[in-house]
Amino acid sequence: MVTVASRIRLEDRECPLSTTVEHVGEWWTLLILHDAFDGYTRFDQFQENLGISSSMLTARLKTLVTDGLLERRPYQTNPVRHEYVLTNLGRSLRPVIVALAAWGNSQLAPHERSMILVDAESGEEVEPVVVDARTGRRLDDSHAYVFAAGPAAGDAMRNRYAHGRPAAPAAGPEAGHP
């Protein structure tokens, strides 16, 4: 991904969650990607489906292209018009979008769900879960899986995960404690 002017704190730049949110954490970005997964490619399709202003859509599409999630391709020459097609990097976000939608649906009763994920062949609703590719075990057990400092971790990240669990923030006046 291309590095852009960042809104994240310097100490968070090595955190994969912080850097990911920097690229895809904006409301319209996730909805545009969702539409792209549904086969939308043209500016007018995104705009009509989302009800987004031209200026906002232009800005979001430009960012998605700059970040390498979408590719801008001409589909018409007179006048020149472009479509926006998912790249491999963009397509790799599909499980994230599916997981977010599944989490949203999990907060609703089955009859309240306006969109569900189904098996393309059988039409049966599926229950998306995130699993470890090696073992097939679900990752939603916060006791079985924890984050740890990786090989490129700086001192702050290594200190945070020194004991296999994040260190609790220090209490003190800045935390609202005397």
Rank of each mutant, 00 (worst) to 15 (best):
A101L: 14
A101D: 03
A101Y: 03
A101W: 03
A102M: 02
A102Y: 03
A102T: 05
W103E: 13
W103C: 09
W103V: 08
G104I: 08
G104T: 10
N105W: 05
N105A: 12
S106L: 02
S106R: 06
S106Q: 10
S106I: 05
S106H: 07
S106W: 07
S106C: 09
Q107F: 12
Q107V: 10
Q107C: 13
Q107E: 13
L108F: 03
L108K: 14
A109C: 03
A109Q: 11
A109R: 13
A109N: 13
A109W: 06
P110R: 06
P110C: 05
P110M: 03
P110T: 02
H111W: 09
H111V: 11
H111P: 02
E112I: 02
E112R: 08
E112D: 15
E112H: 09
S114V: 08
S114R: 04
S114F: 04
M115V: 14
M115T: 08
M115W: 07
I116V: 15
I116R: 12
I116G: 04
I116Q: 05
L117K: 00
V118P: 05
V118K: 09
D119E: 02
D119F: 04
D119N: 13
D119R: 04
D119S: 08
D119W: 00
A120P: 15
A120H: 03
A120M: 00
A120R: 01
A120F: 01
E121A: 08
S122Y: 01
S122P: 03
S122E: 03
G123R: 06
E124R: 07
E124L: 02
E124I: 01
E125A: 05
E125I: 00
E125K: 01
E125V: 00
E125H: 03
E125C: 01
E125W: 00
E127L: 03
E127I: 01
E127G: 01
E127S: 07
E127A: 06
E127N: 05
E127Q: 09
E127V: 05
P128S: 04
P128T: 00
V129S: 10
V129M: 10
V129H: 08
V129E: 09
V130C: 07
V130T: 06
V131M: 06
V131K: 10
V131C: 06
V131Q: 03
D132S: 04
D132K: 05
A133V: 13
A133L: 13
R134P: 02
R134G: 09
T135A: 12
T135G: 09
G136N: 01
R137A: 14
R137Q: 12
R137M: 10
R138M: 08
R138I: 11
R138L: 05
L139N: 04
L139F: 10
L139Y: 07
L139A: 12
L139I: 13
D140S: 15
D140M: 07
D140K: 01
D140G: 09
D140C: 10
D141V: 12
D141T: 09
S142I: 12
S142L: 14
S142N: 12
S142C: 10
H143N: 15
A144G: 14
A144T: 05
A144K: 11
Y145F: 15
Y145A: 07
Y145N: 08
V146M: 13
V146F: 07
V146W: 12
V146Y: 11
V146N: 15
F147V: 11
F147H: 14
F147M: 15
A148S: 15
A148W: 05
A148R: 15
A148Q: 14
